[in-house]
Nucleic acid binder design. Structure first.
Lengths: 257, 257
DNA sequence: TCTACGAATACCGAATACAGTATATGGTAC
DNA sequence: GTACCATATACTGTATTCGGTATTCGTAGA
């Protein structure tokens, strides 16, 4: 049975792999050197990154058909890494197999957008609850810092506004210290790549909503988990209403209770 | 631009593809035939299924090394579908690349188990909140039914007890009607495949906890979202404490407030 | 003009081949 | 006994090929 491996740093490397031997005691080496990811970069990862970038900046749109051979030719690689990247997007439900070959970029329905916003309510509402329960001022000051960084920053494009908003919300979830929760947050926002294609989501700046980002932070500091959770949920529901009203103004602004 | 495709049923098939033509008016055909998934089954999916089964029934354990060529030989296929299945498991962080080739089955740390339980609190706590907000008796009766089915059923193995518990909790999330939330639920429980390998999770029957499944349902019916949410969170925290106490009895049973 | 059928085309999934990389092993010198 | 070096081995990632399947196209016949 092979030894258990903990993660991408598979263990101490033999001394021969290190820079020229010095007088450091072995126990001090970890303080002076960083672990090196020994695993080979994969072309499939780069293909994936480019596809995701194209999806999020409008280069690829719902209904577009992605053909393995053509992408491979365009990127100057073989079909294999392209296929691997596409299968990954398929797992993430961003694309679906077409009936005449190829994968089709999937559009998000309005109902799906509602559901995605609800999953945000679950994750970010829970994060708000945890932060209010704990009242850890160090964690909360990191959120404060993220809010400052991203509200004063000039947004040259609406896409940057979207990224800034995401960064604040991500900082909130990160402040819980739960990496699994951050992973779910990322999965949900990455799925919103398809959502982006439905509407110009990045035109919305949730920072302008009530309760605002600053007000949310106040609820965390107030120490009432229920109140913090419901405030976050309200904030997100305002965002949803705004999102839906872009295409249909009859979906009025959400009235907070 | 190709037409937008909605899902695995890409649209009406030309009549020529159907069984011998009958006298049905075209508008009636949908009542008599079911859509057929036109997409080819992939070997990679079957490989994946077998690997996940082996992970969940103990055939594969943390630290085990998965070699593409060997699995391919054992399953009588080429390396390609094996690789695709393994890359999928890698994306799901169930396995990590080893430093001498192969992929290693990853073990879940205690901290990771805590975090996974917290993500359950986020998802299932939110589901509880939604159900209490809505008070939809049709949805709640489905949960009632799931509880009945799975509490009276004889559990021949502890693994079946685990599956029964999962089914009840999944029914709760499904009752929200939010498929994205169900997707997250499945992702979290599927990640717990690795958790299974850490401890005999399936020895725990959360149905025996307080608040019990029945009591949770009562909180949904009572119509207080905050109360329903916190009851679910308590239930899950009891489960975590029990889970951790299997290996270390000093981690005492969680005291509900 | 419409329908049916066969051939062509487009694309995918899987198998196979090739090249690169990291580790293990064996031999040799000190 | 230890360190170093060359070679072998094990495995991966990618490229290429092959065969299958679904759609499209062209043509013949009614």
């Amino acid at each position: 049975m092979s030894p258990t491996v903990k993660g991408p740093s598979p263990g101490p490397r033999p001394p021969g792999s290190w820079p020229p031997r010095t007088a450091y005691p072995a126990s001090d080496m970890a303080e002076h050197f960083l672990p090196i990811d020994a695993h080979r970069p994969r072309l499939a990862d780069e293909v994936y990154r480019q596809l995701v970038d194209a999806l999020s900046d409008g280069g690829l749109r719902p209904g577009d058909r992605l053909i393995q051979e053509r992408i491979a030719e365009a990127m100057g690689v073989s079909r294999t890494p392209v296929r691997e990247a596409l299968l990954r997007l398929e797992q993430e439900r961003i694309i679906v197999p077409g009936n005449r070959g190829g994968f089709i970029v999937r559009a998000a329905s309005e109902n799906e957008i509602r559901e995605i916003y609800e999953t945000r309510e679950a994750i970010e509402g829970y994060a708000a609850r945890l932060l209010a329960e704990r009242g850890d001022e160090t964690a909360l000051s990191l959120i404060d810092k993220a809010i400052d960084e991203h509200s004063t920053q000039a947004h040259d494009t609406a896409h940057e506004g979207y990224l800034a908003n995401k960064a604040v919300h991500r900082a909130i979830v990160r402040a819980t210290g739960n990496t699994q929760l951050v992973g779910l947050f990322d999965a949900v926002w990455d799925r919103s790549v398809a959502v982006l294609l439905y509407a110009d989501l990045h035109r919305i700046t949730e920072a302008a909503f009530e309760p605002s980002h600053e007000e949310l932070l106040d609820t965390f500091r107030a120490g009432d988990p229920d109140r913090a959770c419901t405030a976050m949920i309200e904030h997100i529901r305002v965002g949803l209403a705004e999102q839906l009203s872009i295409h249909d103004p009859s979906k009025a602004r959400y009235e907070t209770p």
